[in-house]
Design a binder for these strands. Structure first.
Lengths: 297, 297
DNA sequence: TGCGATTGATAACCGCTGTTTATCAATAGA
DNA sequence: TCTATTGATAAACAGCGGTTATCAATCGCA
């Protein structure tokens, strides 16, 4: 039995007329008669009671008609679904976020995708450093990464979506909190709470800024992420230098101040060139509107 | 797209091996490759990622695999169902009953069918006289009739399943209620409550019995069915002569007494020879055990 | 009653396409 | 480097689904 049998039968049952059904199916009438006969032989059941003048659907035919319709409709659903997957408009997308980016960018990203490609499910993995995201993009554990360049290797494509200055995070009662803008030099001997030194692009930027300003602040504490870093600042263990987007993560007792002369850090969307699926392509396309490409500094 | 594509794809996806899948499908491997390619082209989606060494199912393939399985399983259900209809083990059977037969025979009939052919739905139409049942058997409104012979016309087949004597129904305080067995002659001038004279086989049998006994009892009241007849008897409007199976329908104030010398009436299963469906055949076969053929008197 | 129109079935022929056989290219393992 | 394995490709074949031509049966109408 083939779908042809079902399609032909449904059409004949609907019209109760071999001639007109044949016309609608764009085949000749004898072919229809033959196919229906085949179907009945295989089922061992007469589906259509035909005289030379009229065709009636038997009770068994009535039952099989409903089943055939169900099968054909089910197939249609499947075909549409898989086509949407092929177009990248449906499926599961794993997105990785670096540090504070989840707080500052995920809301807009999620809202845009829910509106433009509602059948795309998101799985978010936050607090991934650049190196790990690149690795996961390669293995397919991530489809898209939101990370801080530079990426490791030519096989990772990326697009800068934001270039943000570093800002100062100090306890609310700290002397530097009184000034609207703080110069690097003013930090002088303030103890610094830093990010994890290994693999952190932000750490490197902070260190570079200090070096350029001729500062060598004592670095007593390391935090595994921005939230922890700010908590340590709130606890009075030192001041922090964090990306401006950390402002999206307010914490009682901590205030942010612009930092004159500090470096900037970039945020980028990244993907694996070789395994770039239609889903990734579609989503990157949608995100072009929400997060337009920013000129790299 | 045809079911062939789905069957081939499901097998390849299950084995992840074109060669072994081809073997299982009893086709050559190139045919498989070709068919899968066709499917992918039509869907516009790569379902199977194949290298020269291994085959993997893509996420889209995973999705379509589930859909294809659903479609194939749905078809299988439909085919099994319609085959059972073809075998007469499933479907809707309309059964007609004459007068009291519904009370005396329907319980056993329904229980037997529920046990032996559980997928057969019953639709019961009671209180149908023989003539009307024959007509309905011809038009297909009934599949099987439980009626009192004779039937009208050669196209109705029937099988006698019971031959029962007529019995006397009298009010509990009636003089005849005192005797365990009543002779026809003892009824003499008792007013008789009868069935509808037109088309009632039982009426004819009662009339014949009276004629043979030389009685011409006054017939003041006609009842449209046994229940009504007994109610009239209970009301003291006369005595009734009813088939023995009426005892299955006890009514306060009415007692039954054997009637010596009265005629017997038969009960039969009837069907339409020309439109006898597999369902009717199967059910008649099952009922052979419950209601064996009785020798006609 | 008879004729024509309609409708599904049948028969014979045809051609597409699904299948097979033979072969190749690529890769993993020894 | 050689061999075995695996899927893809090419060409030839054949089965079968499709078409045309025709028939048989029935209904409508005169």
């Amino acid at each position: 039995m083939e779908l042809r049998h079902l399609r032909y039968f449904v059409t004949v049952a609907e019209t109760c007329h071999f001639g007109r059904a044949a016309e609608r199916l764009h085949v000749a009438q004898p072919a229809l008669s033959h196919t229906i006969r085949q179907l009945e032989d295989e089922l061992g059941v007469v589906l259509l009671a035909r005289t030379t003048r009229q065709v009636r659907v038997t009770p068994a035919g009535e039952f099989f008609l409903a089943e055939a319709r169900r099968v054909l409709a089910g197939l249609d659903v499947g075909v549409r679904g898989v086509r949407r997957i092929g177009e990248g408009k449906r499926g599961l997308l794993r997105v990785g976020f670096t540090g504070t980016a989840a707080f500052s960018h995920l809301p807009r990203l999620a809202r845009a995708l829910a509106q433009r490609v509602p059948d795309v499910e998101l799985e978010i993995r936050a607090d991934l450093l650049t190196a790990e995201q690149c690795e996961r993009l390669r293995t397919g554990t991530l489809g898209i990464g939101v990370l801080r360049p530079p990426v490791t290797g030519d096989d990772i494509g990326f697009r800068v979506i934001e270039s943000e200055p570093l800002v100062l995070a100090v306890p609310a009662d700290h002397r530097l909190a009184a000034e609207p803008v703080v110069a690097m030099a003013e930090m002088r001997s303030e103890p610094l709470v830093t990010y994890d030194r290994r693999n952190s692009v932000v750490y490197d930027a902070v260190a570079r800024s200090c070096r350029e300003a001729g500062l060598t602040p004592p670095q007593l504490h390391e935090a595994s992420g921005t939230a922890v870093l700010l908590a340590l600042v709130a606890g009075g263990l030192g001041v922090g230098v964090v990306p401006a987007s950390a402002r999206a993560l307010p914490l009682a007792g901590v205030v942010f101040r612009d930092l004159a002369g500090a470096a900037t850090v970039e945020l980028a969307l990244a993907w694996h060139r070789e395994t770039r699926s239609p889903l990734v392509t579609t989503v990157l396309d949608v995100l072009e509107d929400v997060f337009p490409t920013t000129e790299s500094t």
